[in-house]
Simulated assay, not measured.
Amino acid sequence: MANSNAEYIQHHLQNLTFGKIDGTWRIAETQQEALDMGFWAIHLDTMAMSLLMGFVFLFIFRKIAKRANSGVPTGMQGFVEVIVEFVQNMVRDTFYGRSPLIAPLALTIFMWILLMNSLKWIPVDVIPGIAAAIGIPNFKYVPTADPNATFGMSIGVFMLIIFYSIKVKGVGGFSKELAFTPFNHWSLIPVNLVLEILGLLTKPFSLALRLFGNMYAGEVVFILIALLPFWIQWSLYGPWAIFHILVIPLQAFIFMVLSIVYLSAAHESH
C-alpha cells in the first residue's frame, strides 16, 4: 500500500516532460528520465494548459468587448466590467508613473493567473485520467504548481522592470541609483551595489516562489485527500475547495499588485 500510494503521488506530481536523453528526443517516462533531460526539456502539460487558459481569457474578454452595450450590464458583461474597473482602480492607486502598458498588463496577469489557479478545483484524477486513457502517461494540469510557469511570468515582469528603469532614468541614472542607494557616499558604493542588486534579483524570486509554493502545497493536499476512502474524500474535499475560493484569487491578486508596485518603482526618476 505504501508503494502504491507513493507511486500515485509521484505520478500526479510528475510533468509531461519532453526533451533529449541518450541522443533521442522523446517524452520522459519516469521522474529520473525527466531530470536527466536537463535544462532544455519542456513541460508540455504546463505549456498546453497555460496557453489554453490564456486563450480562454482572450476569447471571453474579446467576445464581451464586441457585444458590450451602454445599458445596464448583465451576466458576463457585468462580471468583466467589475474586473476591469477593479484592476483600473488598483493601478490608479498603486502605480505613480505614466504608461499605457501597465493597466492591460495588470489585467492580463490577474485573469491569466486566476484562470490557471482555478484548474485546481477540478478533481485531481479527472484530467490525468483522461490523459492516460488517450495514451499520455503523465499530465500535471495546474500550471502555477510548476515553478517553470511561475518563474517564466516573474522573469517577464523582471525584464520590464529593467527596461523601464533604463528608459525612465537612463543608463547613467539607473547605475547611479544602484551605486548610491541607500548610502549616498562614494566609499560605500560596493555595499550599495550588493544591497541593490540583491534586492533587484529577489523580486522575480519572490513573485515566482510565493505563487508556486501556495499552489503546489494546495495540490499536494488535494492528492492526499484523494488517497483516503471515498466516503471521507468528499467530507474533506469540499471544505478544502471552499478554502481555495479565497486562496486562488488572492494569489493572483498578490502577483498583480507586486508587479504594479515593482514597475511603479522602476518609473520613479530620482
Rank of each mutant, 00 (worst) to 15 (best):
L178Q: 14
V142C: 04
L101F: 15
P190F: 10
I161N: 08
S235I: 11
M215C: 10
V91M: 13
L114D: 03
Q31D: 06
T46G: 10
N15V: 06
W186N: 13
L201R: 04
R26N: 11
V142I: 14
I109W: 03
E33C: 10
M153E: 02
V171K: 12
T108L: 14
E33W: 09
G199V: 11
L44N: 08
A41T: 11
Q88D: 12
G97F: 01
W240F: 06
S187F: 14
I9R: 13
Q32D: 13
I136T: 13
H185F: 10
E85I: 00
L200S: 09
F230P: 00
F57E: 05
I102Q: 11
A106S: 15
P204I: 07
F212S: 01
A145Q: 03
W121A: 15
F255V: 00
P100E: 00
I225R: 05
E29V: 07
V56W: 11
I113Y: 05
T150D: 01
A208C: 10
G38H: 14
W112V: 01
F86T: 15
Q14G: 03
T46E: 03
D146E: 12
Y216F: 13
K20Y: 06
V171R: 15
I122E: 12
M1S: 07
F230A: 11
S175F: 06
N3F: 02
T17H: 08
P204Q: 07
Y164P: 09
R67S: 15
T202R: 12
A265S: 01
V257I: 09
G199Y: 07
W40L: 11
I197M: 13
A217H: 04
L258Q: 09
G78M: 07
R98M: 03
L228V: 04
F230Q: 04
K120M: 14
P190M: 06
I127H: 02
Q77K: 06
A266Y: 05
D125L: 03
R98I: 02
L13G: 03
I232Q: 03
A266T: 02
T144C: 08
F18R: 10
D36I: 05
G75N: 12
M159H: 01
I166G: 01
Q14V: 09
E85W: 13
A179V: 08
F110W: 03
N148F: 15
P239W: 01
N89Y: 12
Y262P: 05
S269Y: 05
